[in-house]
Amino acid sequence: MPEQRSRRRHVVTHVVLMAGALLMVSPFLWQFLTSLKTLGESTRVPPTVLPEAVRWENYSAFFDVVPVGSMAVNSVLALVLRVVGQLLVASLAAYVFARLRFRFRGPLLACFLVVLMVPPQLFVIPQYEVIRTMGWLNSVQALALPGMFSAFGVFVLYQFMRTLPAELDEAARIDGANPWQIYLRVILPLCRPALAALTILTSLFSWNDLLWPLIVNTIPDRMTLPVGLATLQGAQGTDYPVLMAGSLLTILPMVLVFVLLQKQFIRGIAMSGLKA
């Protein structure tokens, strides 16, 4: 009897969840269907659901407008550099704040955290000036640098490291290890789940970033994919099928990676939000 009730309840649950899921993905379905239509079809009233004839040409239009290949390479290189840099920088800072006792710890930590409250657009111009002064415009490091020092990673890892028991450090110290050795041999290995989470989040930020790459890398061969998409929009105006095709191509890699590494992604998000 209770079993039956629970099954009935599951039917309701499925209906609700399915309806919600449909709402979540319908924009992507519509995007895909539109990407195969002609311009005329895409603006027809009332809209037609299925394309009359499948037009894959809309996808090649993206390749005609921008050098998609080199852009994809740039996006990947920038992502790798930014992730590696962010992991190093953030884990060091987080370790110092979470495990060491030193003067001005509070104020220094506040310096890192207050940055998270600032609208990111505010930093763009001064950061641009820094990169320019270094002579690094139109380079991979220009794409990755500011993000490497993002306080977000410090925040995530700091939250995690604080939860590790203090006895770990003390035992290592008694064995004669210095803080650098403790960081390297004791703390970091324990942070692997948090580092994985940060890797995923930083990758997401890096791949989807638009404003910054748009400003620092202006030579087509050095641009990233989102910039290519913005360029496409500039070139094709409101040619919906071509725009939908281009945007689908740009988001596809991240979605595929997500589907493959789903568990890690979900853990990553959960981790960044773990309670303090």
Partner: peptide, 28 residues
């Protein structure tokens, strides 16, 4: 443990490479 070390090794190498690359680019 081991994989973390490898990770850091890679990271350090990448950082060194970046700096080297930057030096070249600087002249522009």
């Amino acid at each position: 443990m081991k994989s973390t070390k490898t990770l850091i090794g890679i990271a350090a190498a990448a950082a060194a490479l970046t700096l080297a690359a930057c030096g070249d680019n600087g002249a522009g």
